[in-house]
Design a protein around this nucleic acid. Structure first.
Lengths: 238, 238
DNA sequence: GCCGCGCTGTCACACTTTTGTCATGGCCGG
DNA sequence: CCGGCCATGACAAAAGTGTGACAGCGCGGC
């Protein structure tokens, strides 16, 4: 899984720094904002996975900012953890009322902070819809995460699984290696294009039952394509 | 059996207080929420056994909140009693349509309230609490809270028991470690993903009679799965 | 109260599978 | 027939998983 991005909103630099160090040790990407305005921009532009929001801030307080987010459909379900000073602890209930998903009182342990962030991200990540994809007797079942041909299980590594899933969702359409890299591997990943060939080969090998490897077609000088037509055993050249 | 937890969702403090007194006299644990947002958090975190939900609330109304719960798999079967003012009585039909299990009009007697809650809990819980789950000769008996293979008892810790129960209720389906944390451990728990591996191992070890440990399958790069298919290949004679 | 016991979560390390890269040789189209 | 493009097998690094050990905790017996 790719690294998660956390937005830190606090007007005091020492606190931001401490948070940043703690979060980066826990393997999060951090963005900082020193006031509500900046925070709003970051939230709109970067869509962080979670926001750490200071309760007390000059001008627009964290409370007000959160209230605004909760009214907006885009940010309504964005996970937010409130940071409160010890003295403000009574406000916990109010914080939850307003819509914070969790709150942490300063001072706090980096460990606890990371744990809570992970837990919150964990429970707010929506489960993917489990679909069943089929092509002839080839079946990809997302709920059990299995692939089978005629009921016989096919063993695939995670990457080949994602690759096949992508192909079966986008059939009869040719993709360049770069497009495949972006869609299957992820946006910013630095992998040699030729590596695709290898994975295509592995996928074909795994699918070589009843000729299902023919579904994965080479488009010379361009890339690859998943073709349902190959199942009918008719080789139609277009 | 431990005391039942009831969540009270109402924006008016006097009513909450009265409900709370009434429920505590009837031996229930109470949690309060003053609005939809707060209620949502409590439902997610604490999994109350039953919810008392006010029909009229500012912002997100009880009706809307209930509709949301009924759409969500986690909360789909959670018992909910709607509270309506006398004047709104006409809406009772709508309330039941939406998915409330019962409704009570204010003002009401504490005794009636307690009685209805008990009735509802009684009819909601045994459905799943008393069931026996089996897979081949593996038997999980919820009433005695025991697990056995071929009649030979299997010793499991509470966590491994819940884990197995969850798996047997959701067979042939792959779950990520995060999903297992949410479903078996609970939403508000902060533990490492890798801890799951350890519990899986303990469960496998306990089930390693006649190859039943093979039911717990590793889905590399994803998570784990309980597979009934793994049973078939061990022995066919019986 | 004190002790031992079982259960949990975490860690470090061994082990397995997966993955990206390379070199080689075959195939296709012009 | 040639130059590019692709398929293939091998391989080492990386990622993911299994496992034993261990300390903290809560609980019941004594």
């Amino acid at each position: 899984m790719s690294r998660r991005t956390v937005l830190i909103v606090d007007d005091e630099k020492p606190i931001r720094d401490m948070l940043k160090v703690a979060l980066e040790m826990a393997d999060f990407d951090c963005i900082e904002a020193t006031n509500a305005q900046e925070a709003q921009i970051v939230v709109t532009d970067r869509r962080p996975d979670l926001v750490l929001l200071d309760w007390m801030m000059p001008e627009v307080s964290g409370v007000e900012l959160l209230r605004r987010w909760r009214r907006n459909e885009e940010t309504m379900n964005m996970p937010v953890i409130m940071l409160t000073a010890k003295a403000e602890e009574d406000n916990t209930v109010r914080g939850l009322e307003i819509g914070a998903d969790d709150y942490i009182t300063k001072p706090f342990s980096p460990r606890e902070l990371a744990a809570r962030i992970k837990a919150l991200i964990r429970r707010s990540t929506p489960a993917e819809a489990d679909q069943q994809l089929s092509a002839g007797n080839l079946l990809l079942d997302n709920s059990s995460r299995t692939v089978s041909i005629n009921g016989t299980p096919v063993s695939l590594g995670p990457t080949e699984y994602r690759l096949l899933e992508f192909f079966m969702n986008n059939r009869n359409r040719a993709y360049t290696r770069n497009q495949l890299l972006n869609n299957v591997w992820g946006a910013n990943v630095y992998i040699d294009e030729r590596t695709i060939d290898v994975h295509i080969r592995r996928l074909r090998k795994a699918l070589s039952v009843d000729g299902y490897e023919n579904c994965i077609q080479t488009v010379r000088g361009f890339g690859y394509r998943f073709s349902e037509a190959a199942l009918v055993k008719s080789d139609t050249s277009d």
